[in-house]
Each structure stands twice: as structure tokens, then as C-alpha cells.
């Protein structure tokens, strides 16, 4: 089997697993971190496809913007500090 193809299947399965974790995560922040993983691995796919610039922009725009999603996740959802009072 070709090495590139092997890496592709490996990355693709990781992307699918992370995407499954995004959907089935209990905690919104966990989901968002898995989403960042999805984006990063997609950038790796782009590198395999020799689209390096696209990969860089993928990381810069999507992964960089993930922190904003986390902020919205924290600010717009009500979360109880574990074993403590409401935040």
C-alpha cells in the first residue's frame, strides 16, 4: 500500500473519530476542543494534497477562531463549578 494513502486513511479515521467526539461530547468545551482537532487534522490532509497555503490558512482562520467559540460556549451556557456554586 502506498505510504501517502496509508497516512490519508489514518488521518481520515482520526478526523471521523474527532467529529464523532464533537457531536457526542457531554461538555461544550470538550466538544470545541475536538472541533479544533478536526480542523487541525483537515489542515494535515491539505498538506498531503500539496495545498500548503490552504493548510496554513485553515489553521490561522478556523483553529484561531476556535477560542472565540470557546468563549461563547463559556459565556452563553450555564455551568456549575464542580462541587461548588453556580458560576
Amino acid at each position: 500500500m502506498d505510504l501517502v494513502l496509508l497516512i490519508f486513511w489514518f488521518l481520515a479515521s482520526l478526523i471521523l473519530a474527532s467529529a464523532w467526539a464533537v457531536v457526542n461530547g457531554n461538555d461544550i468545551v470538550h466538544s470545541v476542543v475536538w472541533l479544533a482537532t478536526v480542523f487541525l487534522l483537515t489542515a494535515c490532509l491539505f498538506i498531503i494534497a500539496d495545498a500548503e497555503f490552504l493548510a496554513v490558512i485553515q489553521v490561522l482562520v478556523y483553529v484561531g477562531a476556535i477560542s472565540v467559540v470557546i468563549i461563547f460556549g463559556i459565556m452563553l451556557t450555564k455551568r456549575t463549578l464542580k462541587g461548588g456554586e453556580d458560576v
Binding site: 476542543v33 479544533a36 487541525l40 496554513v56 489553521v59 490561522l60 483553529v63 484561531g64 476556535i66 477560542s67 470557546i70
Partner: peptide
């Protein structure tokens, strides 16, 4: 810059 922007996560 992309590597810089990952760290805040």
C-alpha cells in the same frame, strides 16, 4: 502566525 494562533486555545 498560524502556530502562534493555536496557543490561546
Amino acid at each position: 502566525m498560524a502556530a502562534f494562533s493555536i496557543a490561546p486555545i
